[in-house]
Design a protein around this nucleic acid. Structure first.
Lengths: 226, 226
DNA sequence: TGCATAAGTGTATCCTCTACACTATGTTCT
DNA sequence: AGAACATAGTGTAGAGGATACACTTATGCA
């Protein structure tokens, strides 16, 4: 395979990357998807999935592509978060990183290590390993955005599969807020949003009364409240 | 003056710029600062101030520098907004633009055309001229962010000078929300925030009772409400 | 001095958010 | 068969915050 030919500019251009913070809820805890770096710098350390922007590719496309290539995760909620461009954030060259955050339902998570990644793993947000680059900062910003959005959007529904029970929805909120919620008030609130509808089906799981199933009325659309 | 020497990379890098949407309130209207482009592309069209990121310069620094160079405006509230990187957004080369939005009090606005700008001008947001690039989209995003932040932060105070009256504050909110507000309720709300304090001075303007002056307790700090 | 103008002030009502406990319906075990 | 168990599912009363609303005060100017 031949070397790529050099691309030259009158003034130096920074490299542009995307990095993606993928959250999910598993085992009643908020968890984050990380990859173990195979190459220097920070070889062996954990990092957010991400990589370089192709010259003819949109930012959103780059984030989705890198996520799929490195972890096998695709078709999940993805939102641009913030752009990190401090001068020394990558020791190799000047890199401006457009960070994304993403939410995945616990089901569709056949993660697999991809091209550049030696391994992938889910980590509880309260027990993260040592992270490469400024990725700890990116994760903190993503977590702040997530918590803020709970308040004024239906973003938390993205943690659930297509159909879900009100009990499951409540557990998502309780995990994210790290607080117990009143069942009756929570159900009144959730139904008053007018964002979910009963499917008519029930789910029977365990030795107790079956739970009604619900789905989003605007499927996979995050609504703004207030 | 000699030509700059070329900088070469194994893979093509996009250019990175910042663009800044500066809002102010003048003549009871929300207005935006634009520059008239002197050079192609879009020569003669109006555009947001902004320009290329220096290779050893942080993003925030770049935004503040470009704003000062092109318009003379400095030391105002500046916040990163969103990064626009669609493939065809600049006809010259691939350009990823980190957009900022900024708020300026109506007083300190000695705007002047700078290096690259043929002219600068304030435009009412409801009467913008034809805009270069995707700047109409950036402005729309900035306006949405501004209106959203009214609800949960004290960002609107950035439109006021160091001391101000409650009447002036109310007019800012009325202009931004395009609605009339009840004076007594507004004052109760503003004082209950615990973000402003009376200076003890009054301002006499016109033939009516003088108004008490207030200032922010945490000067030039935007607080989050709720 | 009286007229015009904006500053400044309190209360009653509505509506939303919160606290709180029991019945229903299925499975499993004896 | 029925008792034990586990989660689903439901209503109401009180508190607190948001809203609607009108008159008095202080100044400048004719």
């Amino acid at each position: 395979m031949s070397q790529p030919k050099p691309h030259c500019y009158a003034y130096p251009h920074p490299a542009v990357t995307t990095d993606i913070a993928v959250f999910t809820i598993r085992e009643d805890a908020l968890q984050l998807l990380l990859i173990r770096r195979g190459n220097p710098p920070y070889a062996g350390a954990w990092a957010l999935p991400g990589g370089f922007l192709d010259i003819d590719e949109d930012l959103d496309t780059c984030a989705a592509r890198e996520l799929a290539e490195e972890t096998g995760v695709r078709d999940i909620y993805l939102e641009q978060l913030y752009t990190f461009g401090a001068v020394g954030r990558d020791p190799r060259e000047r890199v401006v990183s457009v960070a994304y955050f993403a939410l995945a339902p616990a089901g569709r998570l056949a993660v697999q290590a991809g091209d550049d990644a030696a391994a992938t793993g889910w980590f509880r947000l309260d027990a993260l390993p040592e992270l490469a680059f400024d990725h700890a900062e990116i994760i903190a910003a993503a977590h702040r955005r997530l918590v803020a959005k709970l308040d004024y959007s239906t973003i938390a529904f993205q943690f659930l599969p297509e159909t879900f029970t009100l009990g499951e929805l409540q557990r998502v909120y309780e995990t994210l807020l790290d607080a117990e919620l009143d069942k009756r008030n929570f159900r009144k609130w959730a139904l008053a949003l007018e964002q979910i509808e009963a499917t008519g089906e029930v789910r029977r799981r365990g030795s107790h009364r079956p739970a009604r199933l619900y789905r989003l009325t605007d499927r996979k659309q995050v609504a703004f409240l207030r």
